[in-house]
Design a protein around this nucleic acid. Sequence first.
DNA 1: GAGGGGGTATGACCGGCGTCATATCGACGA
DNA 2: TCGTCGATATGACGCCGGTCATACCCCCTC
Lengths: 229, 229
Amino acid sequence: MDGSLEDVLRQTTIFRRLSPDDRGRLASVATVRTFARGARLFSEGDPSDHLLTVINGRVKVFKTTPRGSDVILEIFGPGDPVGAVAVYESRPYPASAVALEATTCVLVPRQSFFELLETHPTMIRGLLGGLTLRLVELTNRLAELSGGRVEARMARFFLKLAADMGQPRADGTFLPLALSRQELADMIGTTIETSIRIMSRWSKDDIVRTEKDGFILVDRARLEALALT
Amino acid sequence: MDGSLEDVLRQTTIFRRLSPDDRGRLASVATVRTFARGARLFSEGDPSDHLLTVINGRVKVFKTTPRGSDVILEIFGPGDPVGAVAVYESRPYPASAVALEATTCVLVPRQSFFELLETHPTMIRGLLGGLTLRLVELTNRLAELSGGRVEARMARFFLKLAADMGQPRADGTFLPLALSRQELADMIGTTIETSIRIMSRWSKDDIVRTEKDGFILVDRARLEALALT
DNA sequence: GAGGGGGTATGACCGGCGTCATATCGACGA
DNA sequence: TCGTCGATATGACGCCGGTCATACCCCCTC
């Protein structure tokens, strides 16, 4: 079991640069836990007693606005760390996380994590890198979200998805990510009705098709034109 | 000069937890530089060869959206680190920074900074803390910006300012921060016309007054009511 | 088969706010 | 003193998109 756990750790962005020794030490204090679809990994305000890393499945990290609606901050997949920020600082989670589907995670107790940091400072450099990457992405999200037409934001969102995880296919670019209209709306900061309207229109115009397990970008040129609007 | 520079370093959020020895070492490689109002500290895409920390004055960090308008990501004052993120990762600055007024900064060359990190791992713990704090604030800004009426966002913005730096006075709470209508608009993600309209209305209704060197919250209760709208 | 719940879809309404245009005022320089 | 430029201010217009309401479909449970 420890062997596979180490393999898993090597695939995570945050731990991959560790030396085999460090990874072994980490594996010895880590545990595995599964979450059913819809289960909460943690809620905003909870004490951050564990560092979570996704092995398989998908986790949605979101924050409830002062007015009660949700904003999806991030969707984590295999290899991504969840709530690492809060753990580093020993402060309560600033957002909530739920499993979008059956999800398996590696849990590292905060205490053990800190002890490892103390004894193996080399680990910290990799963590600094991961943190800064997320900061950059968040600043981009910020610039993206404020202002602009919803349809243009949606177009840019799909183009970014395509760049991140698009798979070329005969009939277009496949995005292996099944998001509901509601989640789509939360990602780009609008309502479910508007996201449904846009997706319906795009489906009629053969720009983006919704499939069982993801989306297909059919007319990428049109999307790029929309993104500039 | 080194003596005062060390004093300055002790007041910065990012360096305050360093041991006196570490601070001394940092001071020995740091330099001081002043920027005139409107001067660029750096532009988006520039290589990040220096870590900047504000001593006095104010710096605006902003990002130009795909559509050409600006979003102010942060306004830094004395003690704040500017562009630290990019320096940690040795990647180009993800945003631009200009001085809002005459501003003095401490500059630490990236090379020297890294050498210090190598030799004194204790410094890194403090940096982790600073980074996570900014991440949390950014997620809050994200949740704040998406959706909601502009007037409500503006109200929340002023209330947050009051909590951060408000000074009680006979006629209300004074905010010693002179922001133009344009900068106000950028902070909450709207246009200059709308921010002018709201401020005009609030001025007529005696809710917030604009003064030469800041704002005065006259009717805080009304602001709090607006913030919930 | 009835009933309920969740996701998707579509129409009607209308109000906030972005856009364009214009006016005023103060600062600054020729 | 005039002209220019930037910041502030205000009106008119129009439309995107939020809100409400309803309907349909699929899956599950009883």
